[in-house]
Design a binder for these strands. Structure first.
Lengths: 185, 185
DNA sequence: GTCTATACGGTGATAGAC
DNA sequence: GTCTATCACCGTATAGAC
């Protein structure tokens, strides 16, 4: 895969993360990614919708990978999940509360506006849930229980990100870490 | 307060709920609210930022009120919160997953972009947390514990809304209701 | 208070040269 | 593959009549 194409996707992820779909312009993406402007519609003939959908999928894949990495560091599901959420808290804090999940905003903005992007978001969230799910299964949770808990874990992390970004404090996310630790133990 | 002004705010709430800040235009607000276009900048001299900030506050106030209403129907905090979340699930489902919280999207979009709107979102979330907090205190939770739980309740509801809107199923929210019921009992 | 008209920048997108 | 020029459109915001 070409370098310019990859650069565009990565930059789009970053911009979506802090500005959302409607807040991010193609010109901005080109400028920020230092990619040749002419190549935008060459690599992404379907325009903004395609770029966003692919960026969302990319981001889902990357995040799921990071979750798996993080979770493998601890044996118990309880500590593993909690530690991961604390890492997210650090990330959000270090970015000056500009970052969070690239999915959250985009998912909300496009849920009923673009089917293509919506499907990408759905798939991306599925990847995150699967990553948590696997860990829970490994740790002995029954299948149905693991499914439910994985969904709840993702939900409360997303909510924690929202509250932390809004309040400009990592406290809500750290609190989510604490509650999930209790819940999973 | 004038009728046009109120109409504009209410319409803005609805549009923000499904489209977010950058996805909602002033022309759209005027058209949808059937308010005289000329009065937009008469009532809101600071433009879009002011309209949004006021709509967010309005929405926070209304939602907090609805939370209090809902919570007062049941005695135990556990059942009260759970029932409220189930109502939210119905609301999201009935709207065809177009609606959710007017705050979520706006809060994420503007966290580091508009101080005025960010402060409004912060205050609005504070109102929601307070509503839950009061109920928890009434039900005998210690102050520190009630604070933590209220934050976690709001976070997981917000996350549930995101997942439900994205997946076009009310399941995530219903699952949040179930988990919170256990957590608070 | 409300209306119409308009300024002006930025948006996504396309065409055609190279 | 990439560049430049250009398109039509929509965004917010303002001016001035009534």
């Amino acid at each position: 895969m070409s370098n310019a194409r990859e650069q565009i996707l990565q930059t789009t992820c970053t911009l979506l993360e802090k500005q959302g779909y409607h807040g991010t312009g193609l010109n901005e993406i080109v400028k920020e990614s230092h990619a040749p402007k002419g190549s935008l519609y060459y690599y992404f003939p379907d325009g903004k919708e395609q770029i966003t959908a692919e960026a969302v999928l990319q981001s889902g894949k990357d995040t799921a990978e990071r979750i798996r990495m993080g979770l493998s560091e601890s044996g118990s599901a309880s500590k593993a999940v909690s530690d991961f959420v604390l890492k997210v808290a650090d990330h959000v804090e270090l970015s000056g509360f500009a970052a969070g999940s690239p999915l959250t905003t985009v998912a909300m903005e496009t849920a009923t506006q673009s089917e293509r992007i919506n499907l990408a978001c759905r798939e991306a969230y599925g990847m995150l849930q699967s990553a948590f799910n696997e860990k829970l299964l490994e740790c002995g949770f029954a299948k149905a229980k693991a499914d439910e808990l994985a969904t709840f874990v993702v939900a409360s992390i997303e909510g924690g990100i929202i509250l932390s970004r809004t309040s400009h404090t990592a406290n809500p996310l750290r609190l989510v870490a604490k509650q999930l630790k209790v819940l999973l133990s």
